Simulated scan of single mutants.
Amino acid sequence: MDSATPDPLALDVRRIAAISLDLDDTLWPIWPTIERAERALHAWLSREAPKTAALLLTPGMLSELREATAKERSDLAHDLSALRRESIRTALRRGGEDPALADPAFEIFFAERQRVTLYDDVLPALKWLSERYPLVAISNGNADVHLTGVGRWFRAAFNARAFGSGKPHAPIFRAAAASVGLLPKDVLHVGDDAALDVVGALDAGMQAAWLVRDERPWEHGARPQLIVPNLHALCVALDTA
């Protein structure tokens, strides 16, 4: 997949007056970031709550706590920060230590979570795109565009926690378009998640580009107007269409 792949629906570049972008796994790989943040959290717990730190070394314990918290606190499904904080609180309780430590522990995790390593194509592409279109970030995660160092390229940023709901539901896409004075039909959304980004954006009335940095088949009904392997290919497609 070395170049942009147009769908028979065909990307209508003339309609595009703004671009919305997903963050995690679109601008940077998320799992190396999360793993580094979890290591920083564990190092802090080893000093401040050693019994909890020892508990979390049990294979599968961290994922078990996350899953249990997500099930118990389904009201927080759109708020990954709150879910993470509550899973830390549960771990502290199980370890017999002060659950109030969950708040400073989460701050350690959150600060490290913002230290992302951008894909090589991202900064040149954001510069090129932002010179031609207003850019809006739309994320279900808890990255902050300003703390991650990409905020200067974006006119606005939406995340599920602050907005109250996330992708694939239409309201967050509509709000992103409205933030730059547009209707969804005037916006191209770009993201890596086929269901959350592409199908969600299409259902909201946007055009969609699927950014897929690995080889994965398309497994949904409605198709994106464009498939690209990276943001450089997106820029090429927009420049030559």
Score class of each variant (00 low, 15 high):
Gly200Phe: 07
Glu38Phe: 12
Tyr119Arg: 08
Gly205Leu: 01
Ala102Lys: 04
Ala156Asn: 09
Arg36Asp: 13
Thr240Cys: 04
Ala241Gln: 14
Ala4Ser: 14
Ala91Ser: 12
Asn159Gly: 06
Asp75Glu: 15
Ala201Val: 11
Ser46Asp: 11
Leu126Pro: 10
Ala157Gln: 12
Ser165Val: 05
Val198Tyr: 07
Ala82Arg: 11
Thr5His: 10
Asp79Cys: 14
Leu76Cys: 14
Asn140Asp: 13
Leu11Ser: 09
Ala40Met: 12
Pro124Asp: 07
Ala143Trp: 08
Ser46Tyr: 02
Asn142Phe: 06
Gln225Asn: 15
Trp153Thr: 04
Gln114Val: 08
Phe106Glu: 00
Val190Phe: 07
Val122Cys: 10
Ala37Asp: 05
Ala176Glu: 10
Thr58Met: 09
Ser179Ala: 14
Pro124Tyr: 00
Tyr119Lys: 02
Asp120Cys: 04
Phe158Cys: 01
Arg14Ile: 08
Glu64Gln: 15
Phe110His: 15
Val145Arg: 07
Ser20Trp: 01
Leu231Phe: 04
Ala160Pro: 11
Arg132Met: 00
Pro217Ala: 12
Arg94Ile: 05
Ile108Lys: 00
Pro99Tyr: 03
His220Val: 03
Ser63Gly: 07
Thr148Gly: 15
Leu11Asp: 01
Pro171Thr: 01
Arg115Glu: 08
Asp121His: 09
Leu65Val: 00
Thr58Leu: 11
Leu226Val: 01
Thr52Asp: 09
Ser87Trp: 04
Thr69Gly: 05
Arg93Glu: 06
Thr5Cys: 07
Leu196Lys: 14
Leu57Gly: 02
Arg213Ile: 00
Phe173Val: 06
Phe110Gly: 02
Gly141Ser: 02
Phe109Gln: 10
Asp25Gln: 00
Arg85Thr: 13
Arg89Phe: 12
Thr5Ser: 12
Pro134Ile: 03
Trp31Leu: 06
Ala102Asp: 03
Gly205Pro: 09
Arg36Phe: 06
Tyr133Arg: 01
Glu215Lys: 11
Arg14Trp: 05
Trp128Ser: 15
Leu126Ile: 00
Asp192Ser: 12
Ala77Phe: 13
Leu23Tyr: 01
Pro99Gly: 06
Leu65Met: 08
Ala143Lys: 03
Leu211Gly: 14
Asp98Glu: 12
Pro8Gly: 11
Leu188Trp: 09
Asn142Ser: 04
Arg174Val: 08
Ala157Ser: 14
Ser46Gly: 06
Leu41Ser: 11
Gly191Pro: 03
Glu67Ala: 13
Arg15Ser: 13
Ala176Lys: 07
Leu23Met: 15
Leu23Arg: 06
Met61Pro: 02
Ala37Leu: 05
Ala111Leu: 13
Gly221Ser: 06
Ile88Phe: 15
Asp239Met: 02
Ile172Gly: 12
Cys235Asp: 00
Ser20Phe: 09
Val150Phe: 14
Glu67Leu: 10
Ile16Val: 14
Arg113Pro: 05
Ala43Gly: 07
